[in-house]
Design a protein around this nucleic acid. Structure first.
Lengths: 328, 328
DNA sequence: TTGTACGCGTTATCAC
DNA sequence: GTGATAACGCGTACAA
């Protein structure tokens, strides 16, 4: 238990109002009393009760950030960027990891609302549309602005994300230009927006180029990437390129490739997603479609703060980038 | 703004007390009134004000977790484990990333105290001892129990961590047994406990074995690992083994090795820290001294909850483990 | 310059 | 079974 203003006031023989004034740096307090209060403030372990303060001022200066997996490198970068931006703007952050669990996502959404955050940045797991509308609906109904990142599940609030179809198309086009005509895709879950869109982009581009696409669907995690690649390698003819739609699935897929005794880019080309791997830990180095994480985080935060000022939150689509290394 | 109990009560023609009773599932309320309240509760977007509730009940059921870098794989695993444990025990979590910044660590510590968390799990950056005592002192003075993880900076509160000296000794011993007599160490910052202890363990074991140790000090991050390895390779004779004390430094060091045209384990053996790399992304696979992350997280959380019940928080040292793969 | 009093949304105590 | 009402810690309008 920390001491309260009331107690401070009692021991000092002044009123709580005076203590409060000193704490908030108000002008109308005499230098002597101010000095006395500040002196006591230093050695008595006073810690202002932010809950009570927020209750009174009706402001928390707090933004919630909710992602499916905090250990995903992409999310880590986005979060750090957003948190720095918000910190500069004087906002505190509440970080939540739903662990890819839609129930937990909802629980966190309720919890954040209960904590009276002033806005939320969310990479939702997004189910069916009406379902989602229901989930976000309650939060928005409480007057809490939301900005989506990564996953775009509803038009009811703003979003900052890449043009995922373009990312898919970009990958297929590149592999085609490298001479591949027998391309396989390991897609993320099509129950999620990013999974669907990236795959749709691939299909569109393939259709334009007159290509057949072999598709496997995973869940964005290592294991599903491993299994999908294994399954693809069991087919004849073997694909001449594989485009994998998440970083973790890519690592799994590369392991499956190696376990099958195959090598990239010799036996087939490999194109990944969200892998920068600056230090070339994975050899040969992996080419990848990457997102501007820092820009996404900062822009989403900026967008959200604008929404707090009443502006309708915008939806911004950024350009994905093709990071070419050795794998294709 | 979400609706309040008062408003609900008004529209229903009952008192706030009744609404509160229904919300808290108290028995003494008639079935009919309960039904009426619950009905209204459903379509009016009521979200209980957790701030007000905590202010009144003087409980937040919230634990703060503060680490230097949320993207570090080790911390990610510890956090997830701790959060799950706390969730099961009915506790909420406030996640903070100090970004290796001691000033930010202190700011978060104050902020968490202000938010009236009931306990804190911290992997501190830990400076000089008195300094630290000052930092934690205020928090502990407020009656908030702390349990340290990873870094052990003060005896004033409990801790859950590995026997870091043993981890260092274990690594040197293993490399010695593999025939190495010219071992180099890339240590973490000796201004941090883990950096100091791991290095001390190495030195002790080396002394026992009659070995000279070549030591470089880094800051746990990739770049410093790269630079340290480069510097080591510039020396004659070249070391026959390198023991690197963090995962990120290891990736940097491996890159430097490769850039120098050398290979492990042929040209020299490599032993890393905190790298599990289940899918063998880095080839040849890296041997590593690893920590039981899940156990650390759960045990630390359990320890902290016990401290909330008045038990003095214990300090627990766990065994590091040697994960042997191909690199040594 | 300083103090008194009120209210933020809850829960809990006490009457009825 | 239900309704006033006090209190949690804080900021502030109003009085003094």
């Amino acid at each position: 238990m920390s001491i309260s203003q009331k107690r401070l006031a009692e021991t000092l023989g002044v009123s709580v109002a005076t203590v409060s004034r000193v704490l908030n740096g108000k002008e109308n307090v005499s230098p002597e009393t101010r000095a006395r209060v500040e002196s006591l403030l230093r050695d008595s372990q006073y810690s202002p009760d932010l809950l009570a303060r927020s209750l009174k001022t009706r402001r928390t200066h707090t933004i919630g950030i909710l992602v499916p997996d905090i250990t995903e490198v992409f999310f880590g970068a986005v979060i750090k960027s957003a948190v720095r931006f918000l910190e500069t703007a004087g906002y505190d952050t509440l970080l939540c990891d739903s662990d890819e669990n839609i129930r937990r996502e909802r629980a966190y959404l309720d919890s954040l609302a209960g904590k009276r955050v002033e806005g939320i940045l969310i990479a939702s797991l997004g189910g069916e549309c009406d379902d989602v509308r229901g989930t976000f609906g309650k939060t928005i109904g409480c007057g809490i602005p939301i900005v989506q990142i990564d996953n775009y599940v509803t038009t009811d609030c703003g979003a900052v994300l890449i043009e995922n179809r373009r990312a898919g198309a970009m990958g297929i086009r590149h592999l085609y230009e490298r001479g591949c005509r027998n391309i396989a895709v390991i897609a993320g879950s099509t129950r999620e927006y990013t999974g669907r869109e990236r795959l749709a982009g691939c299909r569109e581009e393939a259709a334009k180029l007159g290509l057949e696409l072999r598709v496997r669907e995973g869940d964005f995690k290592e294991r599903s990437g491993y299994d999908a690649m294994r399954s693809l390698l069991g087919e004849q003819p073997r694909p001449d390129a594989v485009f994998i739609h998440s970083s973790k699935m890519s690592y799994g897929a590369v392991a499956a490739l190696r376990d099958a005794g195959l090598r990239y880019p010799d036996d087939l080309l490999v194109l990944t997603f969200d892998i920068r791997d600056v230090y070339g830990t994975c050899q040969p180095t992996l080419s990848s479609v990457v997102q501007p994480e820092a820009k996404i985080g900062a822009l989403a935060a900026e967008n959200l703060l604008a929404a707090l000022d009443g502006e309708p939150a915008r939806t911004v689509f950024l350009e994905p980038e093709l990071l070419l290394r050795e794998s294709c």
